[in-house]
């Protein structure tokens, strides 16, 4: 029923942001060009397409995969994706035996360099509460099946380290190059709420 173009708390937030921004501009603490540049960065340059390239390379280059799992921050930087906040990256690998799921129960920490800003459900109270205590139930919600004998590991950010999942390479992708593989990799698979599907 609600919409963004009516007066009230929506425009209240907009007004407060405007007040903050114009005050900081007057004080010379920020510049409009820098703000616009940052907005563009989150919209167009930081996003799951970066993480997908990292995953596709790891699937096709075993040495890179080793480096990625050993030192995620360096291996991701190697691809030209710099962490926005100087965050440390840890990449965890999904296999037939182990499934990894990432959550931030504290707030909404997310690997911006490889995945961009977090999706709405990742920020929500239900996901943050349930991913910790009922991760298999959460996977069900996403329609993701893992076997009862698959070990499930939840990674709760809670500090400076950001986690990304290296999903399992799907079957029937033997002939694909890294570029084509990257097209298959979804944001959700790198959070661990879903798997990467085989091509149609």
């Amino acid at each position: 029923m609600s919409s963004n173009d009516i007066p009230g708390p929506d425009s209240e937030t907009a007004l407060r942001v405007k007040a903050l921004e114009s005050l900081l501009l007057e004080k010379g603490l920020i510049e409009t060009s820098a703000i616009d540049e940052l907005i563009d960065m989150f919209e167009n340059r930081l996003g799951p397409w970066n993480g997908a390239k990292v995953v596709a390379r790891a699937w096709t280059d075993p040495d890179y995969k080793d480096r990625l799992l050993q030192n995620g921050t360096a291996a991701i930087a190697e691809m030209g994706f710099e962490a926005v906040q100087g965050e440390e990256m840890v990449v965890v690998e999904n296999t037939a035996e182990v499934h990894n799921l990432v959550v931030c129960t504290l707030c909404s920490c997310f690997p911006w360099a490889t995945l961009g800003l977090p999706p709405v459900w990742y920020k929500s109270a239900p996901f943050r509460a349930r991913a910790a205590r009922d991760p298999r139930g959460v996977l069900d919600e996403f329609g993701t099946q893992i076997g009862a004998d698959t070990e499930l590991r939840v990674w709760d950010s809670n500090a400076e380290v950001r986690y990304m999942v290296l999903p399992e390479r799907p079957v029937r992708t033997e002939g694909l190059n890294a570029e084509a593989l990257a097209e298959l990799v979804t944001r959700d698979s790198m959070i661990g709420v879903s798997k990467v599907a085989s091509p149609d």
Binding site: L20, I35, I39, E43, W121, S124, E141
Partner: peptide, 30 residues
């Protein structure tokens, strides 16, 4: 549980809720 499944459907992949949200994130970063 209902909330979460609905939220998964509500996810449109957009990085920002609106202009104000985008600007406040950028202010913090800047």
């Amino acid at each position: 549980q209902v909330d979460l499944s609905q939220l998964i459907k509500d996810d449109d992949g957009a990085p920002y809720a609106d202009e104000a949200a985008a600007r406040s994130i950028a202010i913090v970063m800047s």
